[in-house]
Design a protein around this nucleic acid. Structure first.
Length: 118
DNA sequence: GCCTTGACGGCAA
DNA sequence: GTTGCCGCCAAGG
């Protein structure tokens, strides 16, 4: 069946699920990968529907500046930041990841970008 | 059917 | 580099 039949939230989850450990991506990048460049807010809305305890690594999704805009959804940004830091994600500030190194583009399937090379 | 809210993004001042 | 405002898309009151 056409992918267009798949509900938007599920397409978001599918992308988020394949974000490599130690990397991060943005709401806008995911939206663009789904062919909806203006749907960044919709991506955020989709993730807000993710129940606690889900295996979905939604903590690896940040805004375009690398800030933990969704940190409070985990109860406290420290939880999200600690988990990212534990995976080796570089931070510019306490609540801001270095996307120049850790950014993972969902529209690229090339495995070399998952090697953590820079 | 109208208005407000929200885990965003882009641009102007 | 910051702050503010507007635009987008969906959901909920």
């Amino acid at each position: 069946m056409p992918e267009s039949d798949v509900p938007f939230p599920e397409r978001v989850y599918e992308i988020v699920a394949r974000i490599p450990s130690g990397r991060a991506t943005t709401y806008g990048a995911i939206a663009r990968a789904l062919g909806n460049p203006r749907g960044a807010r919709e991506v955020g809305w989709a993730l807000s529907g993710v129940p606690e305890g889900s295996q979905l690594p939604c903590h690896r999704v940040v805004d375009r500046e690398g800030r933990l805009s969704g940190g409070w959804a985990f109860g406290h940004p420290e939880i999200m930041a600690g988990r990212l830091e534990d995976e080796g994600v570089p931070f510019l500030e306490q609540y801001r990841v270095d996307l120049s190194i850790a950014f993972w583009d969902p529209s690229v399937e090339d495995d070399t970008q998952q090697l953590g090379l820079f």
